[in-house]
Nucleic acid binder design. Sequence first.
DNA 1: AGGCCCGCTTGATAAATGTCAACTTTGCGA
DNA 2: TCGCAAAGTTGACATTTATCAAGCGGGCCT
Lengths: 231, 231
Amino acid sequence: MSEDYKQEIRNLELFTAMDEANFRALVRGAYVQNFPPRIDLIHENDPPDFLHVILSGSVDLFSVWNGRETSMATVRPVSTFILAASVRNLPYLMSARTLEKSRIALIPSQDVREVFARDSAFAQAIVAELAQCYRSVVKNAKDLKLRTSFERLANYLLRQQERTGDVAFDLAMEKRRLASFLGMTPENLSRAFKGLEPHGVKVDGSRIVICDLAELTRYAKPNPLIDDYAT
Amino acid sequence: MSEDYKQEIRNLELFTAMDEANFRALVRGAYVQNFPPRIDLIHENDPPDFLHVILSGSVDLFSVWNGRETSMATVRPVSTFILAASVRNLPYLMSARTLEKSRIALIPSQDVREVFARDSAFAQAIVAELAQCYRSVVKNAKDLKLRTSFERLANYLLRQQERTGDVAFDLAMEKRRLASFLGMTPENLSRAFKGLEPHGVKVDGSRIVICDLAELTRYAKPNPLIDDYAT
DNA sequence: AGGCCCGCTTGATAAATGTCAACTTTGCGA
DNA sequence: TCGCAAAGTTGACATTTATCAAGCGGGCCT
């Protein structure tokens, strides 16, 4: 692995505080790979051989049951995924596939577990990361259980508005994947966009304009305990 | 706090491996309290003053948004809750109330964070616990997104069957709470029980008998990656 | 024992969401 | 530039789920 990549990984919150020698040990067995779009990286139920770090591109985490499929999250650079499975050495709960051309570092889970056992700074960083992940999924579960699909979309749009800092933005993913992520069908997403028009949302292809932020906020009733990614 | 309580807490997986002196420091500022049924212990968005350890009784974790309420989990002895908020020092995402008379130990979060920073065995135990919690919520989200309410109930019953080791058992909670936990209304739960009768489920009050386990299994299609609590 | 409260059930109805099929639009490669 | 494939949209309809109102029934207090 090149020094550039190592530095990029080192700059991740998960790896900044740890001991240099331990970090070297961690990346010694690691390697970086380029993947074309729509490649399966991980299949749920596989043993967690590698901790994945996405350096460029984007990855979809999804799950399947009984012929149905749902998108659980999108991972973007620079961050890791499937940390929980790696540290506990338990099978992946989600599958992963690239959405676009992506560069991904693979760190053997075995090494992660060994280093984590002896580097307390690393262990602390893992605690912080896992707590963060846990809270994200809890928020997601609250979103699903407490809101209708229209409300989920409205709040999603407000989060994007917040993230981009602009009332006009492009959707970060295909509508069909957004639908799956929000727990609905593509058809229903189409109707939800229509249904939000009276609440200040204009849609043209993947271009979104929130032309009445106050009204959309009134409708969506965003709540930090569901919608704030930071906390 | 009595030595008995301390020992009970010490036996929790979270606390067994840590240094004795650090454990003493942790429980020094802790205290045990008895609560009557239906008492609010924690309100979501409160700062995480205490890590809670439930010694007896049971506690409901729930969330509220826009006048709607949903039950997220039930905590039973002996285990902790709201660990993620404690270690990250971020507001609680869920509220908690006792379901019955309960004895609960309260450990100041400040102490948890301090000890966790210097006791690597404790940090490792926290990692294991958080990873476990994370995986549980992911499974819950998959359950919600991939299954209908009838299917969720069917799989819930199979999990109970597995847990008790008996095809006949009593529901562990009120039906109205079970409905909320499964993400449906009490009325719909009633109909779901009816709907499962042809699939081998007999209901009399809170008494459940799975009289055709094979048929219920065929209908429910349980999956370890959603339904196994252990992994 | 009587009566009342509360949880549960049931039926009727409405709302939310999914399915299917047809059509339109878009992006891309020949 | 054309034409195709895939994504998106739309309408009709089916299914799932929620809501509302009424009634049932057990537990519990007096």
